[in-house]
Design a protein around this nucleic acid. Structure first.
Lengths: 144, 144
DNA sequence: GTTTTTGCAAACCATTTGCAGGGTC
DNA sequence: GACCCTGCAAATGGTTTGCAAAAAC
């Protein structure tokens, strides 16, 4: 889970300018515990009078998603959300109650993909795996 | 890939009424070769003067998605689409060029999920796996 | 100084909803 | 005949865009 600093460095390293709105946004993202939406950030920016506008939030999230610092999630409910994460190909287990997410390794997935490719004849070049369930602390604290 | 008949039977079996608009929609869906959007169906309904309205398309797709006859897809591009498929839990390989999709079996995925659950401590209760790549015929017909 | 980035507000687009009329069982 | 379903048009909600001013390099 990147900190605000990591996010700013990502902007910088990729040749984007480090601006005040981006600093504030990075901070906002760093504070998110689970998954979040553009709207969450916009609302919080407004609530705390940070002056970061809608457009900036969306534009920055686009960049961050492209840089892999943030990843778009498609929840089982059909809703969309984002999670901050390390840049590198990986997958998530997402808590269906609190939204917290954990990165997971491929642990055997590559073999499955190769197998599917062989059987189906497809030349597979990208994939996505998303797991959903209760995280340890939500299991410990039944019902909500 | 269900035919129009299969789709109508799904409506019927689930206690929904088999109406003229639904007949036409089922036919439209049956004609789709790859993935498609609600808008594709609406446009085609209009083009062919079938008189199936927006609302009906969306409402019916909702039902069909719930029945599992149609499945929502999240493409790597971020776009959304639908595919007609057999009702049962499964996954897809989707052609990144023509959109055609093939169902695949779990072939070992269950073991991976169990493993991830063990390692992460999450109580995993749902998952989604989507694979993307070139289907055999698009491989045979390079560039497009 | 040049180029990127910003905020605002308006534009967009896909999807949803309210409702009165019509079709299905 | 009761209830479900439909089309329409208006409402919605999230995301994008045009633009002139401001900030970064």
């Amino acid at each position: 889970m990147p900190t605000a600093d990591t996010i700013l460095r990502a902007f910088d390293d990729a040749g984007y300018r480090v601006t005040e709105p981006r600093r504030r946004l990075a901070d906002l993202i760093g504070r998110q515990s689970g998954h979040f939406t553009a709207d969450d950030l916009i609302a919080e920016s407004r609530r705390r009078h940070l002056g970061v506008g809608r457009a900036t939030v969306f534009r920055s999230l686009d960049v961050l998603a492209e840089l892999g610092v943030v990843e778009r999630l498609d929840l089982p409910s059909g809703d969309h959300a984002l999670v901050a994460c390390e840049a590198a190909h990986h997958h998530h287990v997402v808590c269906s109650r609190c939204g917290r997410s954990t990165d997971i390794a491929d642990s055997g997935l590559a073999a499955i993909i190769a197998d599917v490719g062989r059987r189906s004849g497809y030349q597979i070049d990208s994939h996505r795996l998303e797991l959903f369930g209760l995280c340890p602390s939500c299991q410990a604290r039944p019902a909500g």
